[in-house]
Structures are given as C-alpha cells and as structure tokens.
Design a protein around this nucleic acid. Sequence first.
DNA 1: CCTACCGATCGGTAGG
DNA 2: CCTACCGATCGGTAGG
Lengths: 207, 207
Amino acid sequence: MTRTTGSKGENTLMALRAAGLERLYKQGFDGMTLRELAADVGMQAGSLYNHFTNKQDFLFMLMQHVMSDLISASELKLEKAPNPRQALLAYVECHVTFHSERRKEVQVSTTELRSLTPENYRIIIAMRDAYENQLLTILHNGNAEKYWANSDPKIATKLILGMMTSVGMWYRSDGPVALDGIVKIYQSMIENLLSDDIDTAKITVQK
Amino acid sequence: MTRTTGSKGENTLMALRAAGLERLYKQGFDGMTLRELAADVGMQAGSLYNHFTNKQDFLFMLMQHVMSDLISASELKLEKAPNPRQALLAYVECHVTFHSERRKEVQVSTTELRSLTPENYRIIIAMRDAYENQLLTILHNGNAEKYWANSDPKIATKLILGMMTSVGMWYRSDGPVALDGIVKIYQSMIENLLSDDIDTAKITVQK
DNA sequence: CCTACCGATCGGTAGG
DNA sequence: CCTACCGATCGGTAGG
C-alpha cells in the first residue's frame, strides 16, 4: 500500500486551517463557532476534537505556524546579506511581501493575541520579539558601520515595522501597482527616513 | 430645582462608555457580555436597554464618537495652518497625539469594523475616508507648491498613516520618551521620507 | 432600574 | 468520524 502525498487526515487538517483562518479573519475567535468550522469542511462539531484538543489550541496552532514561517523567511534572506544596507533591503522586501501575501493570517495573529491563554500568549510574544530584534540588530549594525546615522534605533524599529505592517491593511493583489513596486517604494522611503538629523538631545526624556 | 452639571442618566451613560471601552478593548465585541458590562456599572443586564437599543447600537455609538472627535480635532488644527508644510506638521502632531492618548478607542474602532452592521459599517468607513483625505489633500498641495516632490501621494498617505497609527501599539505614557519627543521624531522622519526621488515610471504597473 | 424569564446556541464529552 | 447530549450562558423582552 504505497503512500502518496498526504493522508486523508493531513488533508482535513489543511482544510481546517484554511477554513478556520477565514472564519477567524471575518468573525474573530469569539465570533466564530466550531459548528460553522465543522460545516466548512463537511463534518460534525464533535469530530473536530480528533484534530485539536480544543478551540484555544486551534488558534494557538495557527498563530504559531504563521510566526514560525515569518521568522524563518527573514532568517533565510538575512544570511545572504553581505552588509547592513543589503540586510535592511532584504528585511523590508521579506516583511512587505509576507504581510501582503499572507495578510489575513498576520492580522489574525495580532488581533487575537488577546484571546490567547497567558502561557500561549507568552510564547507568541517571544516569537514576535525575536522577529523584531532582527530589524533592531540591522539598524544597530548600520549605525556602527556608518551606513546611516539614526539617533534612536529602538523607536525607528517601531516606526518602520508600523509602516510596513500596515501594507496588509490596504494592499490588494488586484490593485493598480504590482507588489514589487510597493516593495521598492518602501525600501526607498525607509532609506530616506533613516538618514535623519534630529537632535535627540533636545527631546524631553521623562525621569 | 436647579440643574447642575449632568443628570444621573448622563453619568451612567459616561460610566457605560468607559466600562464598555475597556471590555471591547480586552475582549472584543463578541467576547464581552452585556451582563459583565451591567455589573461594571452596578446594574442588571435588562436595565442596559434604557441606555441603548441593543449591543450593536452600543458599539456603533462608541465608534462614531471616536471618529467624530478625531476628524474635528484635525480640522481645528488644519484651519490655522498657513501652508502645506505647517499643515503636514500639524496633522502629524494631531494624529500621533490622538492615537497615543486614546489608543484603546482607536484600536477598537479598527478591530471591530467587522462587527458592524453593513449600514453602520458604511457610515464609519465614510468618516475614516474623510479623515484620510485630509492628509492626501495636504500631500497634493505640498507637491503643487513645491514644498516636496512625492511621486505617489496616494501610497505615501497610506504609508504615513500606517507608521503613525502604529504608535498606539507601542507608545506608553510611562515610557522613557515623552509624547512631544515622539511627535518630533515622526515629523522629522516623515519630512525625510517625503523627499523621495524614486522613479515611479520604472515601477511595474499592472494592466 | 429590577425580577423573571425566553429561545437559541455555545464548547465540549460519552460512547460508540 | 457520528449521534446524542450536557451544563452554561448569551442577547433580549415582558411587566412591573
């Protein structure tokens, strides 16, 4: 009995992930019901528990999957970058592409953070922090090696991530500009933005 | 019988708004229950219907209130701006301040768009579009009057709004940098970002 | 603003 | 993977 690609169980699990993502995106964790999800893949509600232990576990699996993909995608690109500038451009391309192509998964992963168990929350947040630290490191290195002179890399990291992440809120693959065009615009604007000359010594620092 | 400030009914409504905002922020529309909300202000669930017609109406009221405040706050500042550059700086200050000080309301207003009735959704989206158009107009005017040369004001509007809005995700009033410092950083970076020289003619435009 | 209640539906389990 | 079911709880209403 030869095993081809994927057993029946794997197929149902993939179908569940796809249907669940759509439900989570449109209705949220508390808004979706397991009966709807079951109907989406043509089964009864009780049978779902052969594929996950409970509703919370299903959400957690999905979010962990997205974060894992995101981190490994950027790591793969960053390995090949010869210098901080190329690393920055690669990170931007990677982030913008991922957040466009998988916008629903990303949005669910941020919106439903509040629906996670405390333990699960900690795990996902740790993954997110690891991902954000990749950019922070790039900005630090670029400062050290004089590729740019940014006064506050921590804040710059947040601003850059904010403008990049929001691409998922408005970019549509059937829109007027192709994705590689969007990527170029982001790369250009972020490089401009990094060459700031604001005197942070003048900024009020709270005690 | 002299009327001082606010009747009892007005006070309960304010308490409901405050408690409801907190519930919506932490649990979402489907996650919060009217029984919890009632308990927050010390009444029974059934009594809530003296203050709104149903749960949907309560959410809509809250969102409409936020959007209305946001729009009028920026309009007030923009009236006094003598030129596009000052208008841009004022808009940035206004947006960043509002999204920091009232971050929970703003987040609820975007996250719970999906929980709105189609009719209510249309109304809130129209308000959001009006607000975004304020920035688009500023960018257009700045281009026309040579304050800066931005190749794609529509996309720039989205990017700038994205990076500004995300301030609510990480800024905390008890953090290391004061709010006016954050505003200055945003203003500086956005002005840098607007002086782009990317050749959009080279960007792939989908047919 | 309260008591008392309605129909509907939810996540999850037992036992095949 | 299904049938049948559980306790719990929800938004909302009637009638004071």
